[in-house]
Write a protein that binds this DNA or RNA. Sequence first.
DNA 1: GCGCAGCATGAAAGCGTTTTCAGGAGTTAT
DNA 2: ATAACTCCTGAAAACGCTTTCATGCTGCGC
Lengths: 351, 351
Amino acid sequence: MRARINGKAGGRPGGMSRGGASIQDVAREAKVSIATVSRVVNQPTLVTEETASRVREAIKKLGYVPNAYAQGLSGRGGKVLGIVLPDIFGEFYSELLRGADGEARRLGYHLLVSSDAHDHGHPTRNENLAFGLIDGLALMMTEPNVELWRETLDAALPTVVLDAEVNEPGVDSVSVDNTEGTREATEHLLSTTAPDRCFFVGGPKENFDTKARAEVFCATLAAAGRPCTEPQVSCGEYSVDWGRAWGRERQRGAGLKGCAVLAANDEIALGVMQAAQEAGVRVPEDLKIVGFDDTRLATLVRPSLSTVRVPLQEVGAAAVRLLVERVTDSEKPATRMKVGTKLVVRESSRA
Amino acid sequence: MRARINGKAGGRPGGMSRGGASIQDVAREAKVSIATVSRVVNQPTLVTEETASRVREAIKKLGYVPNAYAQGLSGRGGKVLGIVLPDIFGEFYSELLRGADGEARRLGYHLLVSSDAHDHGHPTRNENLAFGLIDGLALMMTEPNVELWRETLDAALPTVVLDAEVNEPGVDSVSVDNTEGTREATEHLLSTTAPDRCFFVGGPKENFDTKARAEVFCATLAAAGRPCTEPQVSCGEYSVDWGRAWGRERQRGAGLKGCAVLAANDEIALGVMQAAQEAGVRVPEDLKIVGFDDTRLATLVRPSLSTVRVPLQEVGAAAVRLLVERVTDSEKPATRMKVGTKLVVRESSRA
DNA sequence: GCGCAGCATGAAAGCGTTTTCAGGAGTTAT
DNA sequence: ATAACTCCTGAAAACGCTTTCATGCTGCGC
């Protein structure tokens, strides 16, 4: 229960905010009606310059800032967008967020961030979402199970889904077109390594991107005349640990030497690299590795990591842009946006 | 301008939200007054079980979710906290945010995230802050210049400052106690390296933490009988690039071999390590390196990085906790909280 | 000089809650 | 049986803003 300050708030002239001057105070100070104050703020052309300047002065003097709740309530929307991510930890989400934040800032919106990590996809999420507070929602699903988010998607709230294509009417989406980048990467590996020594180490089996990337990987191998066998594609999770585990396992078996690995993200790639280093297998001389995402990680490790660039900041920014468009124009038809991917060759896969 | 839906919203029975069922609709459906509905939601004990269950049913049927704006406006606060960081990019902020997010979630609050990166400490920030929307503000200042934030600090808004001690009445702070960790780290380096070959590579010169760490570093050297000379402490920025630049410079000069470096964060340490590797200087055989923060980076690189652990997630969580306490009890005296630091020895500094 | 258009302003409704106050129905004590 | 309570519920005010509608004023054309 917040303390309520009745009537005029005393104290410093400038700088009050909450519990500070209201539109009423400004109106009184400038000797006009609250309607006029509101107009000065929102539709300045409707007010005489003389009146307006008097009002502006009063606003300044009292340090008036419109109360966002009241604005929201009276139908203007509070300029807040929600963004829900599986987690907000690590370079991947970090970059996504940064893109979204920048764009939101540019468009005059605020970002309400929420990560799923603490109550993994549990339906209680919906309650947590501050529905009614946010004007739009950018949603990145952990699991491909759209039904988990049924309620959310059905809500009459502008929504854009990140990094997954959904077939919901009226729901925008921004996803990654893995085709080009994956193909490039695979061909790049094939240029130095025999098809049957190429491996794809994926994230979660049901993950949209992992699935897409695995598919293109196999297709490219097939196009090279050597359809990939089952053991050449493995799935796990998007983590260094999984990559390392896969690498050790392989090393114990047929060995990593002479192989090439395309990982479904940079973390996995890094894990594989660590396993190789542990075993004394040199990268890139004995083992080629290509990651995915081109997070900062790729340039931080040695040897630097070849990777497929995904413009994550753009994805975040695009999501926000789409959302704002939809918020301001609810008639806008649903947009399915795709951003391209491209191979970036660094040290870990050099011939 | 959002479309306004007048009167009852048609459409699907469940799942509406914005423009969806209001407390009025629920009241009508359950044949009670809105006051009763509100009570069922907020103070269930005041309502007969029979009435309450009827109301709950109506709520469920209509998919009613309280409108946060209205709640905010009517004095209950919208359960939103703002958090402003210099940037939201990289492992450091990532971890801080994760801690804050988790705690906020636990306490039933939402997090409005905003990074300073796009308009570096510019006063327009204040307008951007959704004042009036947030119940409290966690603020991490880029620069030590408190005056830049004067307006913000003066605002009658519960505020907690992160990672810096401020002397503002009524403003809480959560900062890092660098003493213990820095001392441990310095002594650790001194155990293998001569005092005059130990270096501190800092972040920005005015940064609170860099200053504190440099000081302890020097004091520890002095305690070991060999006060540090000027060139042993350098400042730059918190980046890999700066660390690498420092390393190259030193290598060009007296050489890195046989030295020990304490960096002000893990990124700088990593940069130094890269410079060493470039020059064929082995870590830790020829050069000991200790970082700061213990971000995930430290365990991802090879050799793994010895570092001083700063419980960043705890810092984030504590900030939120303090903020919520202050929001709910505005009389609470200002708290200055400090979290400790501790050396974690990994490979990069082994004897 | 009169009527009418056009413009600047004010009054008031409405947004969806919470909360205070008052009243009505039972219950218990006298 | 009545007074005094207790419990539950409803009516209504308040929160601060946007927006519609009405009104008074100015100036123009006839």
